[in-house]
Amino acid sequence: MPTLTLTGDAPADALLSDNAFALLIGMLLDQQIAMEVAFVGPLRLAERLGGELTPAAVAAADPEQLEALFREKPAIHRYPGSMAKRVHALATHLVEYHDGDAAAVWEDAATGDELYRRVAALPGYGDQKARIFVALLGKQCGVTPDGWREAAGDYGQDGYRSIADVTDPQTLAEVRAYKQARKAAAKAAASDG
């Protein structure tokens, strides 16, 4: 897998690049907080778990202890309780359905639709999150089965729409500006309606 630069934090980016489970956790955490903070979350969790960030280790963790790790300062997420539960559910799913191998979710997907279905089946991954993750895999990780761009929807297009397009501080700023413009347009449309 190529070296990702999603956070601006070298150790966090190295973990995301080397650990498929960390990448899935980062995407899972990417809501209600800044993108780069979400993707630093897996490194914080790994450190608090003593360095072992695997689906088996997290699935075997006591849910209350896992939540306590999420709450340690600095908290891993703005909503540590619900996110600890989601990460635990993700880990359990990977153990039950993918033999604890996070990369198995995408490694042999034959088509973009199959890839999307597998990602969308993960706990905590809705339609939009699954499409963004498919785009991230395709644009930056070399996971490009036939139809992956179509499966990623708008996020598969060129441009700066999501974490899938972040490769450095400049592209992070461009994605953030795009999101802010969309939010402002939606707010304006709501007030006109």
Rank of each mutant, 00 (worst) to 15 (best):
P63Q: 14
M27R: 08
I25V: 15
A14M: 08
E72G: 01
R149Y: 07
A173S: 11
L66K: 12
H98F: 14
K139R: 12
G41V: 13
T7V: 08
A68K: 14
A57M: 03
E174M: 12
A110G: 08
A151F: 10
G50A: 08
V95P: 15
T5E: 14
R78M: 14
A12C: 04
V143A: 07
G51C: 01
K139D: 00
D146N: 10
Q180P: 01
Y79V: 01
Q31F: 04
D154N: 13
E52Q: 12
E96W: 03
D101R: 13
Q32M: 04
Q32W: 03
E114F: 01
Y155Q: 00
Q140S: 13
V105S: 01
A34F: 03
A38H: 02
T5Y: 10
F70E: 01
V40L: 07
R48T: 06
A109V: 09
T167V: 02
G51Y: 04
G112Y: 07
D154H: 09
E72C: 04
A38M: 06
Y178Q: 06
P123A: 13
L115N: 13
V175T: 12
V95L: 03
A84V: 09
A186W: 13
D30Q: 08
L16T: 08
D108Q: 09
W148I: 07
L43M: 07
L69F: 06
A22L: 05
G142I: 09
Y125F: 15
D9G: 01
R149T: 03
P11T: 04
H98I: 10
V143I: 14
A121E: 10
A151Y: 01
D154I: 13
I132H: 10
G41L: 06
A34N: 11
L16R: 13
V175A: 04
Y155G: 00
D113P: 02
P11G: 10
L122Q: 09
R117V: 00
W106H: 06
D168Y: 06
A46S: 09
K139E: 11
P74Y: 04
I163L: 15
V87L: 10
V166A: 00
F133T: 15
R48L: 05
E64F: 15
R182P: 05
E114H: 00
A89Q: 14
D158V: 09
H93Q: 03
A110E: 09
H93N: 12
P63W: 13
A109N: 02
G112N: 07
F133P: 10
S17L: 06
N19L: 03
H88N: 08
E47I: 00
G147N: 06
L23V: 00
R161V: 03
I132C: 12
A102W: 13
Y79I: 04
